[in-house]
């Protein structure tokens, strides 16, 4: 299958990445050549194959549900581009 410009703009919107109109053309070309390469997989019959979801022969460990960290608000806020005392600040969401 091939991806057209509209589809690519839609996927970019899903991924929350704005794409320059000027760049859509070359992006479409690149992604189509990558998908052509990926679609070699269609040569294989995989109807009877179980999908591999983990390469480890172990199930995920469980642990006690208890607090073992915390009270590090300052550290967490330290790298924020915009903050106000105890909060991350974002552009206005509600009028």
């Amino acid at each position: 299958m091939s991806l057209d410009k509209e589809k690519i703009k839609h996927v970019a919107r899903l991924a929350r990445i704005s794409v320059d109109e000027a760049k859509v053309e070359s992006l479409t070309k690149d992604l189509n050549s990558i998908f052509k390469f990926i679609e070699q997989l269609n040569e294989l019959d995989t109807d009877k194959v179980e999908p591999l979801t983990s390469i480890l022969n172990q199930s995920l460990r469980s642990r006690k549900d208890e607090v073992n960290d915390g009270k590090i608000r300052e550290k967490i806020l330290k790298n924020s581009p915009k903050k106000n005392e105890e909060f991350f600040v974002v552009p206005k969401v509600v009028e």
Binding site: R16, I17, S18, N79, P81, P91, K92, V93
Partner: peptide, 23 residues
Amino acid sequence: GVKYGYRSKQGKDLVEMYEKTRS
């Protein structure tokens, strides 16, 4: 662009801020 790292100066609303930041 909220918790750490680069944030775009552009973007009027939250979604646009995300999109510009990531772009």
